[in-house]
């Protein structure tokens, strides 16, 4: 059925290629070839590890993965070992609990940073007050503070509170070793960039709509809830995807704030530890790596359009 419908489209496409070839020399067969070669080069490494994850252990050790094209032999055993057999440095319950940790870190961090970010962006764009500009530039400057600078003080703050000259100013939050101690830093570190990206979008909303609503007697809370929030959904979705990938894939924050305990370690951290402990045991490392890639890849491939739009909102004017 679908082939019948697709047929005319394909003819059109071929025609289009022909008509374009002449007016743009850069889009020549050479360019096509270069792009194809790079796309293949970019995919081979991932593909190699992917294939390896399905090969029997003795094959992984004795031959390269490319030989499977001559002697195809595949097995689920490696995945079974890291997901359902567990034990040793893989962890008594396998890899799945670490994926749960990743979710339990990423979801709150994404929702809270986007939520707080949207409200702050609205305030900076549409509530006139005296230091609005200063705060905006100050936040933008904070983007330039590498998170390396704040890791240790923040860890100390979580453990013992903030002390100045021996006087406790903020008491300890008592969250060391909990999931909150991993997602809270992500929310904090994400604030400047998230506010900036959302501000770009929210500030560009038509002034007339806002003013009309204000004239009708709507207060800031109603304007936010009825106008800004619904109109911002596409922008929020893209920034949420960006944050999701960023936080899911993070290693440094996880190492510092969840380094001590497997209870809250996300997949990336566990994977880094595994590769350290198991070294060249690719029959374990390969399926573990592929497993850790799956969720962000699904999120990315299914929401790619939103994601690209979100990146552009912040980077290209």
């Amino acid at each position: 059925m679908s082939t019948v419908i697709d047929a005319p489209k394909k003819v059109k496409k071929i025609k289009a290629v022909k008509s374009h070839g002449s007016d743009r020399a850069f889009t020549s067969p050479i360019a096509s070839a270069v792009v194809t070669v790079i796309a293949v080069l970019w995919t081979i490494p991932t593909f190699g590890l992917f294939v390896t994850a399905f090969r029997p252990n003795e094959d992984i050790r004795s031959t390269g993965w490319w030989t499977v094209f001559l002697h195809p032999k595949f097995t689920w055993d490696n995945f079974h070992a890291v997901l359902f057999a567990g034990g040793g440095s893989i962890g008594s319950q396998g890899m799945i609990p670490f994926a749960v940790n990743s979710l339990a870190i990423t979801i709150p961090a994404v929702v809270l940073s986007v939520g707080f970010g949207l409200m702050a962006a609205y305030a900076l764009a549409w509530i006139p007050f005296r230091f609005s500009d200063h705060i905006f530039y100050g936040l933008f400057a904070l983007q330039g503070v590498p998170l390396q600078l704040s890791l240790l003080p923040l860890l100390t703050f979580f453990a013992t509170g903030v002390k100045l000259f021996g006087v406790t100013i903020i008491p300890s939050l008592h969250i060391v070793g909990t999931l909150a101690s991993v997602w809270l830093p992500h929310v904090m570190f994400g604030m400047p960039l998230v506010i900036y990206l959302i501000h770009n979008f929210v500030a560009a909303l038509p002034r007339e709509i806002m003013e009309a609503a204000r004239v009708d007697g709507a207060n800031h809370f109603e304007v936010f809830r009825r106008i800004v929030l619904p109109l911002s959904i596409p922008a929020l979705a893209s920034i949420a995807i960006f944050q999701f990938l960023w936080i899911w894939n993070d290693l440094l924050v996880a190492l510092v704030f969840a380094g001590g305990t497997d209870d809250v370690a996300p997949l990336t951290l566990h994977l880094a530890n595994l590769s350290g402990n198991l070294g060249s045991h690719w029959e374990n490392v390969a399926p573990a790596a592929i497993f850790s890639i799956i969720i962000p890849l699904i999120v990315f491939l299914s929401l790619q359009r939103f994601f690209v739009r979100g990146l552009l909102a912040g980077s290209v004017k």
Binding site: I38, L245, N249, T268, A289, P296
Partner: peptide, 15 residues
């Protein structure tokens, strides 16, 4: 070409 963007640098490093 864009796909590695979704893969963590830990995963990418192992690859």
């Amino acid at each position: 070409i864009f796909m590695p963007m979704a893969i963590s640098f830990v995963g990418g490093s192992l690859i």
